[in-house]
């Protein structure tokens, strides 16, 4: 293939990857930014979203669209409920201590994986796309649903942006992020903000899982890779910065496609992880984050 179409494909693929990545990472970024904790089970919330999408689609076998719509509704609610229980039962009890939270959420990660393995099984199960068409370009074809995913992700991101910058909850979140104690002094119900943010983060991950499952398959080990990628995005983008997350998702999404072409893809992944480490060491607030105390 010539370089032109080739770059076009890499761009297309990079854009889709970027939107999905931004959506997956957004939840992690919010939790990280507002609560200053790392939720290692974030990838499992993503996986649960995908598995629930499979459950919904097998409940309504006649219509892929109806199953998908149901999943978009059910999965975030179920996963949100699990997240609420996690916040109440675990995070609050360890007083949101960053290191305890990491250990606890690693524990949660294994428990969720085991539950899914026991009740859902080891198979990678496909879920039919709600709308399917192949876009054919003169040089190659491309999945139409992937473009739909990009659009839907963009919509969710936009809604999140609106939520964060225009609503009272968003105001509370930003206040908490900037200075938790000050926010509390000004009457922001910080504990409730924490719970809400944690639940919202999980719901976003679940939604990303539902969107992506027709492209991938639902499998009980599918959470680890998005978790690592989300980490990369969140760190490069800067903690809790929606803009940074989106920009970083694009940087990673597009460069991953390009680097994998010119170098070995395994090498590309090595470079990406080292880049994250470098960013953390050299500019801990992220490449696009603002310096906040």
């Amino acid at each position: 293939m010539d370089l032109g179409p080739f770059l076009f494909l890499a761009f297309l693929e990079g854009t889709v990857t970027a939107f999905v990545l931004a959506l997956t990472a957004l939840g992690l970024s919010l939790v990280f930014g507002v609560m200053r904790i790392v939720n290692v089970a974030h990838g499992e919330f993503f996986m649960l979203g995908a598995v629930l999408a499979w459950v919904c689609s097998s409940l309504i076998e006649s219509s892929a669209l109806a199953g998908f719509a149901l999943a978009l509704f059910v999965a975030p609610i179920v996963v949100g409920a699990i997240a609420l229980a996690t916040d109440w039962g675990i995070l609050k009890r360890v007083k949101y201590n960053p290191e305890s939270t990491i250990v606890a959420t690693i524990g949660l990660l294994y428990i969720i994986q085991q539950l899914v393995l026991s009740f859902y099984g080891p198979e990678a199960r496909p879920v039919a796309a709600p709308i399917y068409f192949r876009v054919s370009f003169p040089w190659f074809g491309y999945s139409g649903y992937k473009l739909v995913v990009a659009v839907l992700s963009a919509a969710v991101l936009l809604a999140s942006w609106y939520g964060i910058s225009r609503t009272r909850l968003g105001l509370y979140m930003r206040a908490t992020q900037q200075d938790m104690e000050m926010a509390q002094a000004f009457g922001v119900p910080v504990r409730r903000v924490y719970a809400t943010v944690f639940v919202l983060g999980a719901m976003l991950a679940a939604m990303a899982g539902v969107l992506i499952v027709p492209v991938q398959q639902a499998h009980y080990l599918m959470g680890l890779d998005p978790l690592l990628l989300s980490f990369i995005v969140v760190i490069i983008g800067g903690l809790g910065s929606l803009k940074g997350t989106v920009v970083a998702a694009f940087v990673i999404g597009i460069s991953d496609g390009m680097i994998s072409v010119f170098f070995s893809p395994t090498l590309a992944k090595i470079l990406a992880t080292l880049l994250v480490a470098a960013v953390l060491v050299i500019r801990p607030t992220g490449l696009f984050g603002e310096d906040t105390a």
Binding site: L9, F140, Y142, S260, V261
Partner: peptide, 9 residues
């Protein structure tokens, strides 16, 4: 890897 499109070119 979870997406392969970029390899096909």
């Amino acid at each position: 890897e979870s997406s392969y499109t970029k390899y096909f070119p």
